[in-house]
Design a protein around this nucleic acid. Sequence first.
DNA 1: AGGTAATGATGTAGTACCATCACGATATGG
DNA 2: CCATATCGTGATGGTACTACATCATTACCT
Lengths: 157, 157
Amino acid sequence: MAAAITVLDRLLEIGELFQKDMARAFSGTPLTPARTRVLWDLAHSGPSTQHALAARLEVSPRNITGLVDALEAGGYVTRSPHPTDRRAIIVSLAASAEQFMHQMQREHADLTADLLGAVAPADRPALERGIDAIAARLRELVAVEEARRADRVEAKA
Amino acid sequence: MAAAITVLDRLLEIGELFQKDMARAFSGTPLTPARTRVLWDLAHSGPSTQHALAARLEVSPRNITGLVDALEAGGYVTRSPHPTDRRAIIVSLAASAEQFMHQMQREHADLTADLLGAVAPADRPALERGIDAIAARLRELVAVEEARRADRVEAKA
DNA sequence: AGGTAATGATGTAGTACCATCACGATATGG
DNA sequence: CCATATCGTGATGGTACTACATCATTACCT
C-alpha cells in the first residue's frame, strides 16, 4: 500500500513542479498563470467574446475584463467590436503573441519528449494507459461532486 | 508523437483537477491551499518557529505571519514563546487540528486507492515506475534551472 | 409594435495570497 | 560593548478572484 500512496504524491509533486517552472519562466514579463491561461485558450479557440472566454475558463466575466485589460496593455491581445452584436467585444491574439504561443507550444513538446525519455520504453504504453485511466476517474469524481452540489443548490430554490 | 503530448497534458490536467477538488473540499472553512500547506507542514515537522516554517515552505516570513494569524484565529494553531530566544515564536498544531489532519490523510489514502483502482492491475507496476521516473527527471530539470539562476545572481555580486 | 426578460461588459467593493521595504526588539561575535 | 545578523511584523502594492449593481443592447412573447 505504501507504493500506492507514493503514486498520488508523485502526481501532486509533478503538478507543483510544473507550476513553479512556469512561474519562473514568466518572471520579468507581465504574464501570470491566469493571464497565460487566457492566451492559451485564445491560441486554441481563436478570437472570442469575453463572455465565451469566461465560460471556457470557468471564471466570472468580470474577471476576464481585468485579465484582458492587462493583456491588452501589454500588447498581447486586441479588442475589437463584434460585427453583429454591439454589446459584445471580440478578443484576438496579437501577431507577436501568436509567435510567442508557438514558441511555448514547442517548448511544451520538447519538455514532454524529455520527460518521456526518462521512462523505460517498455513501460510507456502502460504508463499512458494508467495516466489516462487516472485522469478519467478523477474527472468522473469531480463531475459527481459537482452534480451533488448543483442538486443542493436546486433543492434550496 | 501525438500520444506523447497527451501524457503531459493529462498530468497537467490531473494537477488542476486536484486543486479544484481541494478548493471545494475546504469551502465553508477558513482553510485555503496556503493555510493547509502550513498545517500539513506542522503535522509533518512538529512545532516550529515562523522563520523555519517560512524557509521550509519557501515563502516570505511576512507571509507566514498572515497565514498563522488566520490559522490561530480559527483555532487550528497556537503561538507560544520560544524557551530561549525571546524574539522567536513557536507555532504548534492545536489538538483539534491534529485530528483534522489525520482525517485528511485518511481521505488522501482513500482517494489514492480509488484512482489506482481505475488502472488495470497489469499496468500498475509500469505506471509506478514511469511516474517515478518523470518526477525524478522533472526534479532534476528544476534543480538545474535553479542552479543556473543562483549562478547568475552570484555573477552580479 | 411594445413591454419584459436575458445578455455582454464594466464600475464598485471586498477577500485572499504573495512580495518587498522598513522597523523595533533581541541575539551574537569580536 | 558595539556592530551585525536574525525574528517577527506594519505598511504598501500587485494579482486573482467574487458578488452585486448598472447600462446598453438584443431576444422573446403576446
